[in-house]
Design a binder for these strands. Structure first.
Lengths: 233, 233
DNA sequence: GTCTATAGGAAGATAGAC
DNA sequence: GTCTATCTTCCTATAGAC
C-alpha cells in the first residue's frame, strides 16, 4: 500500500484488486476469502471489485487465469536442446520442482479447484483445454533418448509427466501435514535436496533400457506372466 | 435420514453429526461448510452440534481425528512377511494407493489442513505426532531386501515413503485439474492401472543394486538432511 | 439431551452521488 | 471510475423451555 494512488487509474486499480485477491484466495480458499478484505488490501473499495469482476466468483476465475498465464510463461523459457537425454530429464524435473517450490500459492489454488471438482476452471474457455506447455518438450526428450539407445522406448509420456510432477507437488503441497505425520520438515533446503536427488535417480533408473528387461510395465511387454504381480487384466 | 430416531440417543446423535460434518467439510472445506446444513443432514438441530463439539472448529478437529483413526486401522492390517522384498514393496504401494483412491475425502481434508498450515492438526494432541503406521513396515522391508542383496542399501526410508505416497496421492487429489490440463481422466480404472504399473516399476528399478552403480544419490554432501527427527526404529 | 427462537454480526452485492 | 452508505441474506453461537 506504499504504491502512489492516482485519482483515476483503471489498469492500476484492476491489477491491485487482482493481486490482493490472489493473496486472499490462495491463503483462505474461495469460501474463506472476504471481499472487503480484498478491497481494503487493494487500497480501494468493494464497489470497484464488482465493477471490474462482476462477482466474487468472477474474480476467482480471473485469478486462476492470471496464475496460469504466469505458469505457462515460465515453462516455455526452458531450453534442453544442448543436453544429453538423461541430463535433459534431470534439468526438466528440477526446473518444474523449483517452480512448484517457489510458488506454493499456485498449488493452493489448484488444490482448491480440485476441491470444487474443477468447476471454475471449466468456466473459463481460456483454461479448459490449456495443455501444459512442457509435455511436448518431455515427449521429444524421451523420443530422443530412446533413439540414442539410452532410454527404454515403451514409456507413456503423459503418465511419466504426471509422476514427475507428483514427486515435487506432494512434497510442497503437503509439507505441513508431512511434518506432523512423518516428522520431517520439507521446507528445509537440505531435506528438499536429498529427496529430489532420490527422485531424479528414480526417474532415470526407470528410463534405462536395462530396467525394461525385468519390467512388468507396460503389461503387453513380455514378462507379464507372473501371477502374483499380475494386475493388468 | 431413514434411520429410526429415538427420543434420546446421545451416541447416535453425536455420530450422525460427525458423519454429516465429515461429508460437509470434505466437500466444502472448513470455511465453506455450513453448520445448519450439517445439523439438518444429521437429522438434528444446531444446538446439539454446539452441545457436543463446542464450536464449528471443534467439530472440524473431531472429524480430522476420526478420519485418522479410520486410516490407521486400515494400515495395520497389512501383512508382508510371506513375500519376497520386491513383491512386498509392490503390495505395500498398491495397498496404499488403493486406499487413497477409495477415500478421496481423506485427501480433501488433508489438503484443507495444509491450506491452513496444519494449525488444526496441531490443536489435537492425538494427531500432532501420529506417525504413519506403515513407515516402520516399509523400513523393515527395505532392510530385508538390502540384506538379501536385492535392494541397494543406501535408501532413506522416509524419503522413499513420501515419494511412494506422492505417486498415488497426486493422481487422485488432482484428477479434475489433470483432466483439464493434460487431457487424461485418472478416474478411469484403466488409466489408474497403467500409471500404477509404471510407478511400481519406477520404485523397483530404483531399488535394484545395479542402479546404485551409476547413481548420483545419495549426494555425498547431502547427509545434512538426515539430522532431523526421523523416527524409524 | 433435545428443541424453538433469536441474538448479533458479518457477508456478498447494489444504489446513486460525484 | 470512484466512493459512501446501505440492503438483504446468511451465518455462528446462545438463551431458555421442556
Amino acid at each position: 500500500m506504499n504504491e502512489p494512488k492516482l485519482k483515476r487509474d483503471p489498469e492500476g486499480t484492476r491489477r491491485r484488486i487482482l493481486d490482493a485477491a490472489t493473496q486472499q484466495f490462495t491463503t483462505q480458499g474461495l469460501a474463506g476469502a472476504r471481499v472487503d478484505a480484498i478491497a481494503t488490501a487493494a487500497g480501494t473499495n468493494e464497489r470497484m471489485l464488482y465493477y471490474y469482476f462482476q462477482s466474487k466468483e468472477g474474480l476467482y476465475v480471473a485469478v486462476l487465469e492470471a496464475m496460469y498465464v504466469e505458469f505457462a510463461n515460465h515453462e516455455v523459457s526452458l531450453d534442453l536442446s544442448g543436453l544429453q537425454p538423461a541430463d535433459a530429464i534431470r534439468a526438466l524435473a528440477l526446473s518444474i520442482w523449483d517452480y512448484l517450490r517457489a510458488n506454493p500459492r499456485w498449488l493452493s489454488l489448484i488444490n482448491n479447484e480440485n476441491l470444487h471438482e474443477g468447476q471454475y476452471l471449466a468456466r473459463s474457455p481460456k483454461l479448459r483445454e490449456a495443455i501444459s506447455p512442457v509435455i511436448s518438450l518431455l515427449s521429444a526428450t524421451l523420443a530422443r533418448g530412446a533413439a540414442a539407445g539410452e532410454f527404454r522406448a515403451d514409456v507413456d509420456a503423459l503418465d511419466f509427466y504426471v509422476t514427475l510432477v507428483a514427486m515435487g507437488y506432494y512434497v510442497v503441497s503437503n509439507r505441513f501435514t508431512l511434518k506432523a505425520f512423518v516428522g520431517r520438515d520439507y521446507s528445509a533446503p537440505s531435506a528438499i535436496e536429498a529427496v529430489s536427488a532420490m527422485q531424479v535417480e528414480m526417474l532415470l533408473s526407470f528410463l534405462r533400457p536395462a530396467s525394461a528387461a525385468t519390467s512388468l510395465y507396460p503389461a503387453s511387454a513380455g514378462a507379464a506372466a507372473r501371477e502374483d504381480g499380475a494386475r493388468m487384466n
